[in-house]
């Protein structure tokens, strides 16, 4: 069971660290990160294993959304199945 976490917004110091911290705290294992900075904009897609998550997935989603709001970023956390279903036959 994996989650896709996407983060977009103005680049500042410590974005990846903050997101990774939340993942570590709730036992989501980061498997892969794709990240780029275009001008002053930051975009990251993170794949995390949520098998061992120690809180409800919906709470985890809310915590990351809240982190995004506090830092002026947009963070979406979605179960990988929506992408697999939509884009693979």
């Amino acid at each position: 069971m994996k989650a896709v976490i996407t983060v977009t917004g103005k680049d500042t110091v410590g974005i990846i660290a903050d997101v990774a911290n939340v993942c570590a705290k709730y036992n989501a294992n980061i498997l892969d990160i794709t990240q780029s900075v275009l001008g002053e904009y930051f975009a990251m897609i993170m794949l995390a294993d949520i098998k061992g998550l120690n809180i409800e997935f919906s709470v985890f989603v809310d915590l990351l959304t809240e982190l995004g709001e506090n830092r002026g970023l947009v963070i979406h956390t979605m179960h990988e199945d929506i992408f697999n279903t939509m884009h693979h036959i």
């Binding site: 996407t6 794709t34 897609i45 979406h76 979605m78 929506i82 697999n84 939509m86 884009h87």
Partner: peptide
């Protein structure tokens, strides 16, 4: 494996 383009397309469909 999840492709970056697919992720962005899905999110853009939902958000925009």
């Amino acid at each position: 494996m999840i492709n970056t383009q697919d992720v962005l397309e899905t999110i853009s469909m939902i958000r925009q």
